[in-house]
Amino acid sequence: MSKDVTKFLRDKVFQVDRGGPESRIGKLLHSGDDYIAVLTEDDGVVYYNTHHIKSFTENTKGQMEFDVEAPKDFKYKKAENFKELLESLKYLWVKINRGGPEAVEGVLCDVKKDFVYVVSKDELVRIALFPIKNVSYGAKIEKAKSK
């Protein structure tokens, strides 16, 4: 993904993809070599593998509802690339992919060259790296209070 696109989206409300279980409305927090970090209302920070993003829709008319502001001291994970980001999430509770049959929640226990390993319930799930569309972990922000 071009750094020009991510510079253009910084601090703007936009929608990742046009619909479906992976689509979210949010604000761009950070961009790495092959991922972006998006602050969302319901899921906190969602890290998108940019190889799977099909479109961005900007909120030009203010019709996308987004009522979250990150505090100045809000901390979230950053890395050079998506694999390094996944490595920084080891031993944390993660949600991989937002919905559909490939969604997995559990503790990310290992990251290898081509797979990640997640303990989910009583199972060890091996997930190929390439099809991972997005990931999030426990950090969330409370919605802003109405004035």
Rank of each mutant, 00 (worst) to 15 (best):
G26C: 08
G26V: 08
K27P: 05
K27G: 03
H30R: 05
S31W: 11
S31P: 00
S31F: 10
G32W: 11
D33L: 11
Y35I: 03
Y35T: 02
Y35L: 02
I36W: 08
I36M: 11
A37G: 05
A37E: 03
V38F: 07
V38W: 02
L39R: 03
L39V: 06
L39I: 04
T40F: 07
T40D: 03
E41T: 09
E41F: 06
E41A: 09
E41Q: 13
D42E: 06
D43T: 00
D43P: 00
D43Y: 12
G44A: 04
G44C: 05
V45L: 04
V45I: 12
V46C: 02
Y47F: 15
Y47E: 04
Y47H: 08
Y48W: 11
Y48I: 09
Y48V: 07
T50K: 01
H52C: 06
H52L: 11
H52N: 09
H52I: 06
I53L: 10
K54W: 10
K54E: 15
S55N: 14
S55H: 12
F56T: 10
T57Y: 10
T57F: 12
N59W: 07
T60Q: 12
K61S: 14
K61P: 01
G62H: 07
G62R: 04
Q63E: 14
M64K: 12
E65T: 13
F66K: 07
D67G: 07
D67A: 11
D67V: 12
E69I: 14
E69R: 12
E69Y: 11
A70H: 10
P71C: 07
P71H: 13
K72R: 06
K72T: 08
K72P: 09
K72Q: 09
D73N: 13
D73R: 07
K75C: 00
Y76T: 00
Y76C: 00
K77V: 09
A79Y: 02
A79G: 00
E80R: 03
N81Y: 02
F82D: 02
F82L: 03
K83C: 00
K83V: 15
E84G: 00
E84K: 06
E84I: 00
L85T: 03
L86W: 06
L86H: 06
L86Y: 10
L86F: 09
E87W: 04
S88D: 05
S88V: 00
L89K: 01
L89G: 02
L89Q: 01
K90H: 05
K90G: 02
Y91W: 13
Y91Q: 10
Y91F: 14
Y91C: 01
Y91D: 15
L92Y: 14
W93F: 12
W93Q: 10
V94F: 12
V94G: 06
K95R: 14
I96Y: 05
N97M: 01
R98Q: 14
G100W: 13
P101Y: 08
A103M: 15
E105K: 13
E105F: 07
G106S: 09
V107R: 09
V107I: 15
L108G: 05
C109V: 15
C109L: 11
C109S: 15
D110C: 03
D110H: 14
V111R: 03
V111H: 04
K112T: 14
K112V: 08
D114N: 08
D114F: 08
D114S: 05
